[in-house]
Structure formats: structure tokens, C-alpha cells
Simulated assay, not measured.
Amino acid sequence: METILAGILSLFVAAPPVLQGYVEGDYLHIGPVTAGELTELSVGEGDRVAQGDPLFAQDTTQAEAALSAAGEALAEEEARLADLDKGKRPEEMAALASRLVQARAALDLSSTELARAKSLVARGAAPRERLDQAERDFERDQAFLDEQTQEYDLGLKGARKDLVSAQRAVIAQRRAEILRAEKDLADRRRSAPAGGRVVDIYYRVGEVVPQGAPVLTLLPPDRVKVVFFVPEPNVGALSLGQEVPFSCDGCAAGQTAKITHIGDQVEYTPPVLYSVKFRAKLVVRVEAKPTGGALALHPGQPVDLDPAVLKTASVEGKTQ
């Protein structure tokens, strides 16, 4: 009788299936900040790099020119600040007056164009865009006239403190432009943000890389993970942080991974894992980080987890 009962129970307490899964990678897509021609490529597919190693560089001609121009503009403004202590000479006042005349002429022209645009748009003879542009030009020329008027008045009044303050603000702006130019030049060279393996390279030397497009993908060891699928009735046996053993072809013995994510939705077994045992099962996706040897794992590589990690549902209660 006991033998028959044990046989019946064995139908309900079948050994947990081998947990199937595969290796996944969260890739770093490394690309330029701005578009430009690729002039250097320091790595190849499959290379392993350390953090800070050079990856690629773009053409720096324009960035170097912009930095040089910013430096010259700063030197000019600093010279102008030093000259303010000498007082306004007649020649300088004449130059201020000339710029003021130019500003007034520009405002008169934009004012006339604004009136013409309003008339044409009102009669339907011109698109609204023309009026919008005329308004912007008028506002620009008005601001320029205000600026030149202020400079001329200050020159007449000899308000040295105001001029010095304004010039220092201009110098601060020029220094900010130098910082931006230096940053743009530095961005033309990219280094590895983390150590890892170069997986794919999408552009070669001589090709123009669009802004935002990756030149290569990098896979750091800490972004390699094991994904496996647990039958829905057994998922309660797992917990975050739990260390689970797994095996794969060519892997060293004793591989383990810590569970970092347990899915909250049930799904059918993914097609890539279809088998006679799994094809009709509802499973839950579980992710785990390898505790060692992640560099030896490759995304897409199949893995098996020991079914012993699952606590078989207690059946003794059913027999009592």
C-alpha cells in the first residue's frame, strides 16, 4: 500500500526542470557629441579596454579654430578694459558717434520694413512669416541702438565705473566662450568610460559620424547578466540577492550569480528556449549578475541553472 502511495505522490512531486536561460549584456553605445569626420579609431572589435583608454577621435580643425578665435576675442576685450583707465579720446568718441549713426540708420530701415510687412500681410499679399521676421529685425536693431546710445552717453559723462563693469561682463562672456570651445575640442576625442570589451564598430576612419550615432558598443563586465526563466509555481522560492549556481558550455565549474530582478509578469516561454518540457509552461523572467568571470560570458550564450535552487512545494501537507 505504501509503495502504491509513493508512486502516486511521485506524479505530483516531479523533479524541478532545469532552468534554461541565456547571457545578456547592457551595452554602452559610445558616440560623438557633435557630428564630424572620424580621423582615428584606436580599437578593434573584440579588444578589451581599460577605463580611460582612447577609443576614437574626430577632425578637430574647426574646434581648434573656434578656440583660437575665442582666445583672440578675449585678448581684445581685456585690452579694451585696460584702455578704459586712460579716458575717452576724441577719436574714440568719434567712433562711438559713428556706430550710433549706423544703429539709428539700421533701426530706421527695419522700422520701414516692419511697416511695409504689416501692410502687405494685412492685404494678404505676403505671408505671416515676413511680418514675424520684420518684427524680430526691428527688435534686434532697437536693442543695438539702445546699446550704442548708452555707450555714447557714458563716453560723454565719463562714467568709468559703469563702463568698467560692462566691460568685465563682456570679458566673463568671452571666457565662457573659451571654456565652451575647449569642451568642444575635448569632446572630439572619446575615451572608454569603463573597462570592458569592444563588441561592435559601426564607423571607420574617413566616414562622417552623425550627431548621436554610436561609433562603437562597449560591454563592461558589470553590465553582463544571466537571464533565466522560472516556472510560475516555483518563482516564490527565489528572492533578490539570492546566489544561484549556473553552468554553460565552456564555462569554468562553480559559476554563480546573484539575483537582481524578478519579473512581476507571467509570460509564455520565449521561442528561443522552446523545448519539449518548456513549450507550454508559464514562466517568470529572472535576472542575475555573475559574481565572477563575467568577461568569459558572451551575450546570447545559453545557460542552465541547477533546479536545486527551487524549493519544491511542500507536498507532505497534501498527504496528511
Rank of each mutant, 00 (worst) to 15 (best):
L9Y: 09
Y22E: 12
L28H: 05
L28Y: 13
L28Q: 12
L28C: 02
I30R: 01
P32K: 01
G36E: 07
E37W: 00
E37A: 10
L41E: 04
G44M: 01
V49N: 14
L55V: 03
D59C: 08
L67V: 12
S68D: 14
E76V: 11
A79G: 13
R80H: 14
L81N: 09
L84H: 09
R89D: 10
R89V: 14
E92F: 09
E92Q: 12
L96G: 06
R99Y: 07
A103E: 09
R104L: 01
S111I: 00
E113R: 08
E113D: 15
L114T: 13
R116V: 13
R116Q: 14
V121R: 10
G124C: 03
A126C: 02
R136F: 11
F138K: 07
F138D: 12
F144Y: 06
Q148L: 03
D153A: 10
A159L: 05
D162G: 00
L163N: 11
R168H: 09
I171L: 07
I178C: 02
L185D: 04
L185G: 07
D187S: 15
R190N: 04
G195M: 08
Y202A: 11
G206V: 03
E207H: 04
P214K: 07
V215E: 00
T217M: 06
R223E: 11
V230T: 14
V230Y: 05
P231D: 10
N234T: 05
V244R: 12
A252N: 03
T256H: 10
T260I: 15
I262F: 12
V272G: 01
V276G: 01
V276W: 07
K277E: 14
K277F: 06
R279D: 10
A280N: 14
K281C: 02
V286T: 06
E287M: 15
E287R: 09
G300P: 02
D304A: 13
D306M: 06
V309L: 06
V309I: 15
V309R: 03
K311G: 14
A313I: 08
E316M: 06
E316R: 11
G317D: 13
G317F: 09
T319H: 01
Q320K: 15
